[in-house]
């Protein structure tokens, strides 16, 4: 049975830290002149992106290539393989191809689990499913924080994290919540009650270290880390916000509010950002922003994930030298 990476929820702290350690190692590889190691030579990775995403897809693709794996990209918009095909057909086709790793991005929550249940010899990596999880995003966020805070002589445990914006629809928020929970960090979801639903108060599911706050200033007060979430235009027509203007009036993360309430904070954003809506350009391009580090670390984290999962798959014969 292959191991999968379907979410951060249910992962052990050791497993999480192991991924980060491996990823740190791969940052070094990415800094070499020849950014390629033979670790996954002869392995096949399928990147199945049924929801548009340039960023995550290219990050996985680069990661696979740097590990010398054969990577195949299938995208929903362009591929006839996928057009009109059900997820069950997709599963059957993939079964026949028998890749070592399947990386899947899908607009419906649970789609990676659907495939993981049906693929006998393939490890499934969730690259974002609906509003459920986006585990590699949380891992790269943590890696970014780990490297940043270690420079300050701090650990990534004991941090105060504020996640601001459309939490309801965000898989990034959920994966980060589970990750920070494993590290014992305090997480505050900040946003209007329409986008930060009270269901998150169910401590039997979400634990006692999660706080909800409708007021931006109070929500970010004293935070070490601010994660801004992407605000989608369609939330307006679905009555979640009166208008994007009103949303940004209340919740745009600006330098003014940060310097007053969270002066020592760093800012993350999963991208692509709507400048001026959920975060100001001043913040995004300023010294607090770790956004470009996130992109770099994304490749390293995905190398670590692909390496860990593909190395465990049964078709491996060659030794795993990095």
């Amino acid at each position: 049975m292959p191991r999968h990476l379907l979410g951060i929820e249910g992962m052990s702290r050791e497993e999480l830290l192991q991924y980060l350690d491996n990823a740190e190692h791969f940052i070094e590889v990415s800094g070499r002149d020849i950014k390629k190691v033979p670790a996954l030579r002869g392995k096949t990775i399928v990147n199945l992106f049924l929801e548009p995403s340039t960023r995550t897809r290219s990050s996985f693709e680069i990661a696979g290539k740097r590990l010398s794996a054969d990577t195949i990209n299938i995208s929903g918009s362009e591929s006839s393989v996928v057009k009109g095909e059900t997820l069950l057909d997709t599963a059957k086709n993939l079964e026949a191809m028998a890749p070592d790793v399947l990386v899947i991005r899908h607009r419906e929550s649970g789609a990676p689990h659907f495939l993981a249940r049906r693929l006998k010899t393939t490890a499934v990596v969730n690259a974002g499913d609906g509003a459920h999880e986006h585990p590699t995003q949380a891992l790269l966020d943590l890696l970014t924080l780990k490297i940043h805070f270690s420079k300050l002589g701090r650990d990534i445990s004991g941090l105060k994290v504020a996640i601001v914006g459309d939490v309801r629809h965000s898989r990034v928020a959920r994966s980060n919540l589970w990750a920070h929970r494993l590290l014992g960090n305090k997480v505050t979801f900040v946003g209007p009650p329409t986008l930060v639903p009270g269901e998150f108060r169910d401590s039997s599911i979400f634990g006692n270290n999660l706080h909800l706050e409708a007021d931006l200033a109070r929500g970010i007060e004293g935070a070490d880390v601010i994660i801004c979430l992407r605000m989608q235009l369609e939330r307006q027509s679905e009555h979640f916000v009166p208008s994007l203007e009103e949303y940004s009036h209340e919740y745009c993360v600006s330098e003014r509010v940060l310097s007053r309430y969270a002066p020592n904070s760093v800012v993350l954003h999963p991208g692509p950002a709507n400048r001026g809506t959920e975060v100001s350009s001043e913040v995004l391009d300023g010294p607090r922003s770790l956004v470009s580090e996130q992109v770099t670390h994304g490749v390293a984290v995905r190398m670590a994930v692909l390496f860990t999962l593909a190395a465990g798959s049964p078709s491996t014969n060659q030794e795993q030298q990095v």
Binding site: A131, H132, F206
Partner: peptide, 13 residues
Amino acid sequence: NESGLSTRLGLKG
């Protein structure tokens, strides 16, 4: 059902 569980699973409640 709209609940903590639907929120966890990322399904519309």
